[in-house]
Computed example of a mutant assay.
Amino acid sequence: MTSPPGGSDEGGRVAQPQLLVCARCGITAEAPRPTWVCSVENGSRQYFCDACSRENLRAIEGRLDSAWW
């Protein structure tokens, strides 16, 4: 096999870039960025841009279990 499972030679779809939207301010990015924060809330992934993450750092850290700090 020369391509990963689900590749075009198996009739699968080629992965498209994922459009991310900041859950707080609505700014978009075409792919995950290293400065963005991903949060799983109620089983759903939410992304926050670097500006919103910095502005709300205390609130984000306040929700972490003590095992994380």
Results as ranks from 00 to 15, higher is better:
1 M>H: 14
1 M>Y: 15
2 T>N: 15
2 T>M: 14
3 S>Q: 15
5 P>N: 10
5 P>G: 07
5 P>C: 14
6 G>F: 03
6 G>C: 11
6 G>H: 13
7 G>L: 01
7 G>E: 00
8 S>Q: 01
8 S>C: 02
9 D>F: 12
9 D>Y: 11
10 E>Y: 14
10 E>R: 13
11 G>H: 04
12 G>L: 00
12 G>D: 00
12 G>V: 01
12 G>I: 02
13 R>S: 15
14 V>H: 00
15 A>F: 08
16 Q>M: 15
16 Q>I: 00
17 P>C: 05
19 L>F: 09
19 L>E: 14
20 L>M: 13
24 R>G: 03
24 R>W: 04
24 R>H: 12
25 C>G: 08
25 C>W: 06
27 I>T: 10
28 T>R: 15
28 T>F: 12
28 T>P: 03
30 E>H: 08
30 E>S: 09
30 E>G: 13
30 E>L: 15
31 A>C: 07
31 A>P: 00
31 A>M: 11
33 R>C: 10
33 R>A: 10
34 P>W: 07
36 W>A: 04
36 W>D: 01
37 V>L: 07
38 C>E: 05
38 C>H: 10
38 C>T: 12
39 S>Y: 07
39 S>K: 08
40 V>N: 11
40 V>D: 09
40 V>H: 12
41 E>I: 15
41 E>Q: 11
41 E>S: 13
41 E>M: 10
41 E>A: 10
42 N>G: 05
42 N>E: 05
43 G>I: 12
43 G>V: 15
44 S>D: 08
44 S>Q: 14
45 R>M: 07
45 R>G: 08
45 R>L: 07
45 R>I: 09
47 Y>P: 06
48 F>R: 11
48 F>E: 00
49 C>T: 00
49 C>V: 03
51 A>T: 12
52 C>N: 05
53 S>D: 00
54 R>C: 04
55 E>Q: 14
56 N>Y: 01
56 N>P: 01
57 L>Q: 02
58 R>T: 01
60 I>W: 03
62 G>V: 01
62 G>R: 02
63 R>Q: 10
65 D>P: 08
67 A>L: 06
67 A>V: 12
67 A>W: 11
68 W>A: 06
68 W>M: 12
69 W>C: 06
